Amino acid sequence: MKICFVLNEIATESCGSSVRMINQAHDRGHEVYICGVGSFCFHSHKPISIKAARIPKSNKKRSPEETLSYIQTQPLEEIVSTDLDVLFLRNNPTEEEGSRQWAEFSGIGFGQMIQDSGVLVLNDAHTLANAFIDKLYFESLPEHIKPKSLITRDKDHLMQFYEELGQRMVLKPLEGSGGQNVYLIDKNERNTNQIIETLLAEGYVIAQEFLPQVKEGDVRVLLLNGRVMEEEGKLSIIRRVAGEGEFRSNFSLGATADSSELTPAMKEIIDIVAPRLIKDGLFFVGLDIVDDKLIEINLLSPGGMEYFEKIGLPDFSKSVIAAIEKKVSYKEKYQGALGNKCLATMA
């Protein structure tokens, strides 16, 4: 198959989950292309074109690090989007900053148009457009599996919610990722007003009930077609343990990886969330869970595969690419009878 991975920008990509999936697609004999969100070109009279780096078919095996180095040194060539079998949206809009505001919606926007031309797009681009702020999508899920929360731009509402929660809450920007600008506000915080005003100046703020169990870390679960991935008898579950004096369990902030079992509480959360993900065509999704509560959902660019390897788990990229191969096969056999959302989460 011909598959194109969409990244924020090739030059700044790190050796994480996307590179592992790119590497696996090549190793399985596919024609692989990689582009940034600034590489699309719309033509009114012909299909959208894409400038992309190409990894030609070959028997040469590379490590993920070698693959990243290779694609970052390749000249870009122009391809026709409708020649692709799959467009895999792996860019994260929340990581775009400053002068790259234009890039926030570009991947999803062009992804919608390419999807409408008949190319399989993962995750479903129309769903991603509707769930562009994944924290709002999160709030549409059943209440009993989530902490209490408030989304507002009103300081008075935030302070009232703070009192309702016993003067302890977590604050974070509605559009953010990687644990950046996330604060625990309690009686010991002397800069509460400054923190609130700074966050409000940037946009909407989420106030969330603080879960004491977060001190033991949270659990990242990667779902494929609404199910926990399994390779070599191992499940795609990893515990992220925060560093000393830190309550945020983000790898980008120094958290360490540890193993975790699939608990009954986790299974219940997954069983509740999965039907919605399947209905919406959300093929590859990350869930962050603390004890019996879902605290975050990542629809846009779930990852962490490089940390799975560090604790003896597979990186699970084989499962992802094998699942995409099946979807391409289904698409060919049904000759257009199955829509993108259906194919996206068909196991």
Rank of each mutant, 00 (worst) to 15 (best):
171 L>Y: 12
166 G>L: 05
209 E>M: 01
190 R>F: 05
187 K>N: 14
169 M>T: 09
224 L>P: 01
210 F>M: 01
173 P>Q: 13
193 N>P: 00
198 T>K: 13
189 E>Y: 03
167 Q>N: 10
173 P>S: 12
214 V>F: 05
229 M>L: 15
177 S>N: 13
222 L>C: 11
200 L>Q: 02
174 L>T: 03
198 T>G: 06
190 R>G: 07
187 K>F: 08
226 G>C: 00
193 N>G: 11
171 L>P: 12
194 Q>D: 09
192 T>V: 13
176 G>K: 08
177 S>Y: 06
169 M>N: 03
192 T>D: 00
223 L>H: 06
225 N>M: 06
230 E>H: 06
210 F>K: 01
177 S>L: 11
225 N>L: 03
166 G>I: 04
176 G>M: 07
191 N>R: 14
186 D>M: 11
230 E>A: 10
209 E>W: 00
181 N>I: 04
180 Q>H: 14
224 L>C: 12
189 E>T: 15
219 V>G: 07
216 E>S: 13
176 G>I: 06
207 A>M: 10
213 Q>I: 01
208 Q>C: 06
188 N>C: 13
213 Q>K: 04
207 A>Y: 01
172 K>M: 15
213 Q>W: 00
223 L>E: 11
207 A>W: 01
210 F>R: 00
196 I>P: 03
193 N>V: 09
203 G>D: 14
224 L>K: 06
201 A>K: 14
173 P>R: 13
171 L>N: 07
196 I>D: 04
189 E>I: 07
205 V>W: 06
228 V>W: 12
222 L>I: 15
211 L>M: 04
225 N>F: 02
196 I>E: 07
223 L>M: 07
195 I>F: 09
223 L>T: 03
217 G>P: 11
177 S>F: 07
203 G>H: 09
208 Q>A: 14
188 N>S: 15
179 G>H: 08
216 E>C: 07
198 T>P: 00
218 D>C: 12
223 L>K: 04
194 Q>G: 02
227 R>E: 15
204 Y>V: 01
227 R>T: 05
182 V>H: 04
184 L>S: 05
185 I>Q: 02
185 I>W: 04
169 M>H: 01
187 K>C: 07
202 E>G: 08
226 G>I: 00
230 E>T: 14
205 V>F: 10
168 R>H: 07
213 Q>S: 08
176 G>W: 10
230 E>Y: 07
184 L>F: 15
217 G>Y: 05
219 V>W: 06
217 G>D: 08
174 L>A: 14
221 V>M: 13
192 T>A: 11
174 L>V: 11
201 A>P: 00
169 M>S: 00
222 L>M: 14
183 Y>G: 03
221 V>A: 14
178 G>K: 11
215 K>N: 09
188 N>L: 11
169 M>F: 06
190 R>K: 15
207 A>F: 02
215 K>E: 12
211 L>V: 05
190 R>W: 04
217 G>H: 04
189 E>G: 02
220 R>E: 14
178 G>W: 10
172 K>N: 15
230 E>V: 09
223 L>I: 02
180 Q>N: 15
174 L>Q: 13
212 P>W: 00
173 P>C: 14
204 Y>D: 12
179 G>S: 15
173 P>G: 11
176 G>R: 08
208 Q>V: 10
203 G>Y: 12
231 E>W: 01
197 E>V: 05
203 G>M: 13
210 F>N: 03
227 R>G: 09
168 R>I: 05
218 D>R: 10
182 V>W: 06
169 M>I: 14
201 A>R: 03
226 G>V: 02
